[in-house]
């Protein structure tokens, strides 16, 4: 098979798959979530909250367990409220915290997971406890089974997140770079920390249902770290990380469709490969 016929074959296959709505939905939702999490990712990584995605999704899992025990029919408000509260508590303390960021995230994460799992075992509601746990890790609905309504929620959310990020970009920079200076010269640092925390919590809760907490954590961490290998200014890192994140999500979803691999892990694998490449470029640039 020569190269030209390989590409035309691939193109036909792609066109064929894009004919299915679920493939289009997956691509759109995947790209939007990748964009939002990479924008927040730069700040979170720099504030030493890389693992907050993981921690908050465990919190959401704990809240889900409580909602199940209370036999609540609509558990979303409770999950969101609890997760936002934890995000605020974690990020608010910021630089002056007695327990530092990573340790606080680890505590809340492990604690919520344990309590949630305990509740689910003591008051079994669904009979498939390990299935439920697996769901929070890898996403309850696979990204390939999204409905139009999921995609719309995703779209609205992304518009809100991107707008907040663009409008407050300069404040987010100064609060992340030097909170004391920002505060001393009249920036309402706690307000912006609150804003970041609430946005992070909302993105994580909604995205967790769609793609799972494993992928969310990866989407927060990898693009930001890759961009930081090569670029040295905040703006360049932010733009690069958004581009990297979106491209990796696109490539990952397409590869997973062609090769039949699990979507989330495929995207993460692409992110890892790109990180490796950027790391090399960073080394070459320095040397």
């Amino acid at each position: 098979m020569n190269v030209a016929s390989f590409f035309s074959g691939a193109y036909e296959k792609l066109a064929f798959y894009l004919g299915f709505p679920f493939v289009r939905y997956a691509l759109i939702a995947g790209v939007l979530i990748a964009l939002c999490s990479s924008l927040l990712g730069v700040t979170l990584v720099l504030k030493r909250f890389s693992f907050i995605g993981d921690g908050l999704s465990h919190v959401a899992f704990g809240a889900m367990a409580i909602a199940a025990v209370l036999k609540m029919t609509n558990n979303m408000p409770l999950i969101l409220a609890v997760t936002i509260l934890c995000a605020v508590l974690l990020l608010r303390t910021g630089q002056r915290a007695k327990i530092k960021g990573d340790a606080a995230v680890a505590m809340i994460s492990v604690g919520a997971l344990a309590i949630g799992y305990l509740l689910m075992n003591v008051f079994p509601t669904s009979g498939n406890v390990s299935g439920d746990v697996c769901t929070t890790l890898f996403g309850s609905t696979s990204i390939l089974t999204l409905k139009l309504s999921d995609v719309i929620v995703c779209g609205v959310l992304s518009v809100v997140v991107v707008t907040v990020f663009v409008v407050f970009y300069n404040r987010i920079f100064s609060v992340t770079f030097d909170e004391d200076f920002a505060r001393a010269t009249g920036t309402r640092a706690s307000l912006y920390n609150l804003l970041i925390a609430v946005t992070v919590a909302v993105v994580i809760v909604l995205a967790m249902n769609l793609v799972g907490s494993l992928l969310i954590s990866a989407l927060v961490i990898f693009p930001a770290l890759s961009a930081m290998r090569v670029y040295k200014s905040f703006r360049a890192v932010t733009v690069c990380s958004a581009v990297v994140s979106v491209s990796c999500a696109l490539v990952g979803i397409l590869v997973s469709i062609f090769a039949g691999t699990p979507v989330g892990s495929t995207i993460v694998a692409v992110d890892i490969a790109v990180f490796g490449a950027f790391w090399l470029v960073g080394l070459l640039k320095k040397g």
Binding site: L46, N170, F173, S174, F177, F181, A182, T185, A227, M228, Y231, K232, S233, F234, R235, A236, V237
Partner: peptide, 12 residues
Amino acid sequence: FPASVREIVLSG
């Protein structure tokens, strides 16, 4: 922290 000199001064 990735930040250029100008970004930092501007933030003032």
